[in-house]
Each structure stands twice: as structure tokens, then as C-alpha cells.
Nucleic acid binder design. Structure first.
Ligand SMILES: [Mn+2]
Ligand SMILES: [Mn+2]
Ligand SMILES: [Zn+2]
Ligand SMILES: [Zn+2]
Lengths: 138, 138
DNA sequence: CTGACCTATGCAACGGAAGTGCATTATTGT
DNA sequence: ACAATAATGCACTTCCGTTGCATAGGTCAG
């Protein structure tokens, strides 16, 4: 728990009780988490607080936001030392059509694409959809 | 206009006046179109009708839906003979952070990715974000 | 031609999720 | 202990997608 406190402080986020709990929750789950997930897990907490906590975490590069095509924003902890904006840290995400969970495949970077003249890429999002390892029974 | 009528009929969609107009509108625009865009263009028409028209078009593979990360569903005409589900027809999309427009780059297919054991891909979405050709002044 | 039938359209309302304003409470540093 | 700053709680809003149901329009068999 001291570890978490330190991580937050390092990134310029005051380690309140709520924030520590949310970080811990994210760390325990190996999948991307939505605001609604967190809301369900912390029934006592206020939605807005959770919302703003996630946003703060994102601004301070503690989590990255994931758009998996479901229309629901998901979040997952960043790798230590990750700068989500850099091309090198852009990895792909996998969304399972069966269990509806989304996971980071941090070791799979987004391939570089040669765009037509005039197009300048600053960011990229690659989502694969299908059946995840848990659901494929393998 | 006869052409459009034929295209709709071929795909099992009855060519009503409204549908012809919407198809024409999509054909004239070279960018991906949202329901709200169409609503603005056809002020007299009912939102629901436009919505259902787009959905019908999508089911019948006349248009494909584009998730460009803005949280707003966009649509663009399919290439003739395209089967949006097939890997070969999956192309990338580019969203301009400046003019907020999204375009199909139909000639840029999504590269094949080797996934870890147990993951089975059925679909993919790749969106690049940055500055488009019009906005980069080139 | 006409009525039965199916499809498309119009109108109204709902729902989920993101986001904002403002008052209150907690934390920090002097 | 006090003032300043940051976090939290509560209420409310907006946006977009979506659905139910009633009506209008087109299609086809008799
Ligand atoms: Mn990720
Ligand atoms: Mn496209
Ligand atoms: Zn799964
Ligand atoms: Zn642009």
C-alpha cells in the first residue's frame, strides 16, 4: 500500500483514501475497467468522485483511457514510465465479444503506417475484437 | 439517380424517396457522416427515420459504421462489392484533430496481427488521429 | 379496383453515460 | 489555529442512441 501511495505522489496526485482504493482495484483487475465497474465495486462512493479520480489519473499518466468500440470508456493502469502519447507506448487492445472484457496487449505495439501525402499522425488506436483466451477455452 | 435506386434494390432495400436522398448525400460527401450531420442536412426529416435508414443501410452492407474515437457514430458508403466483415475489406480511418472530420483510407488495409495463444480475432478497428491533408495545408 | 398486408415513417419518450456548477468537507502549509 | 487549496458530495444537464406504438404509404393477391 505504501508502494501505491508513492506511485501517486510521484505523479503529482495526492494519495487520498479513495484514490488508493481505486488504484488498488485497478491493479488487481487484469482487464480494462469502466466507470460503471468502479461504481459497482464502491457502492458507497459518489459517482462524480470516481469519475474525477479517473480523469485525474489519466491526466497524470497513471492510467490510460481505452476506447474499445463499445461506447463505454475504459481505463487501465499504465506501465511504469509509460508516456501514453509516445508512439512507442501505443499498444493494441483486445475486446472479447463473448465476455465483453477488454485487455491491454502491452507487448503488441501498433504497427507504423505510411499515410498518404499531407496526413500527419499524432495518435493511434487499434482494437481487435473476437474471442479472448479465457473464452476460447485455451 | 437510377443508379442509386438500383444499388439499393440490389442490396434488398426498398428505394424510398428519403433513402435515395440520404444515399445521395453520403455519396457527395467524401467524409464520414454522423446521424447529427444528416439531421442537420435534412431539417424536415425525422431523426428516427434517418437513424433507422442508416441502420438498414448498415445491415444491408450499403454503408459501414465507423468508430473514430469521438464517441459519435459515423457512416460511409461501402465500396461496391465490399463485405465489411471480411478482413480484406477492413481499412483504416483517419480522424483530423483540427477539422474534426473522419475519412476512410480504403486503400490502407489493417495489417494482420499475430495474437497470443487463445485469442481469436474476428474484427478490427484502426484509427489514426492527427492532421488531415486539407488542414496540413498540403 | 380494392382490401389485406407489410413496410416505412412520424412522434414521443426512455436510458446510459459523460460532464458541469456549486456548496461542503478535508488537507496542507504557515 | 488560520487561511488557502484541493477533494468530495449532491444535483442537475446534455448528448446521443434507442425503443414503442400509432399512422401513412406502398405492394400484391383476389
Ligand atoms: Mn492499454
Ligand atoms: Mn471506411
Ligand atoms: Zn472473453
Ligand atoms: Zn482536417
Amino acid at each position: 500500500m505504501k508502494k501505491i501511495e508513492q506511485r501517486l505522489t510521484e505523479n503529482g496526485v495526492r494519495p487520498t483514501a479513495m484514490r488508493l482504493l481505486i488504484y488498488k482495484y485497478l491493479a488487481e483487475k487484469e482487464v480494462a475497467i469502466s466507470l460503471t465497474d468502479i461504481e459497482a465495486a464502491f457502492a458507497k462512493a459518489e459517482r462524480t468522485t470516481l469519475y474525477r479520480t479517473l480523469r485525474t489519473f489519466e491526466e497524470k499518466k497513471i492510467v490510460h483511457q481505452i476506447d474499445d468500440g463499445t461506447g463505454i470508456q475504459k481505463y487501465a493502469l499504465c506501465e511504469p514510465g509509460c508516456d501514453c502519447n509516445l508512439e512507442q507506448d501505443l499498444h493494441l487492445h483486445f475486446h472479447c465479444n463473448n465476455c465483453d472484457e477488454t485487455v491491454c496487449l502491452t507487448e503488441h505495439k501498433i504497427p507504423h503506417i505510411n499515410l498518404p501525402e499531407g496526413f500527419v499522425a499524432e495518435d493511434a488506436n487499434l482494437v481487435l475484437k473476437g474471442i479472448c483466451d479465457k473464452c476460447s477455452g485455451q
